[in-house]
């Protein structure tokens, strides 16, 4: 079982996303994260999804996705050098001496405090999935009030581009 990051150029049309998601449900594949937004070309969306599966399954998944008429291009980023990022907004309990400690931890992780109230910090953090998880561990789950994560976005390193 390996983690795969599948990146897709999709026709930016109603119904296209539901076909991608429907395919996963229908064939019993599991989606861990999913992000989607239009690209610089408004007729195309870029979709990134992560899934854990074995080689045989990922081969079927990519083949089945490629069969969808609206899928224009597809790449499994985990097959090559790539950059992946996720953004997290996290609300943590911050009172008394904790406030300075949390600020320090956020700095170490290059997080930014984007909102402050007497008892709560809201911190913004970007990075690979394991970095975000490490930050939550460092803060301690008892202090965490709420998290929201975008899911993974990814792009290949170097000259390789996914475009028409």
């Amino acid at each position: 079982m390996m983690r795969h990051i599948i990146s897709i150029l999709l026709e930016n049309e109603p119904g296209a996303l539901s076909r991608v998601v429907g395919l996963f449900a229908q064939r019993g594949y599991n989606i861990e994260t999913l992000t989607v937004a239009p690209t610089e070309d408004p007729t195309l969306s870029r979709l990134t999804m992560t899934t854990h599966c074995d080689d045989r399954k990922i081969e079927q998944i990519t083949k089945q996705l490629n069969k969808l008429i609206e899928v224009v291009k597809l790449v499994d980023l985990s097959e090559g050098q790539h950059i992946e990022r996720e953004l997290m907004l996290i609300k943590v309990k911050a009172v008394g001496a904790q406030r300075a400690e949390i600020k320090r931890t956020a700095d170490i992780f290059r997080g930014q405090i984007v909102d402050v109230s007497p008892c709560v910090y809201t911190i913004q953090l970007t990075g690979a999935t394991d970095k975000l998880e490490a930050f939550i561990d460092a803060i301690g789950s008892a202090a965490v009030l709420e998290t929201v994560r975008t899911g993974v976005s990814g792009i290949s390193r170097g000259e390789k581009v996914l475009s028409l």
Partner: peptide, 8 residues
């Protein structure tokens, strides 16, 4: 003709 039929 369908790649997804091969080695399924």
């Amino acid at each position: 003709i369908d790649p997804s039929s091969i080695s399924k």
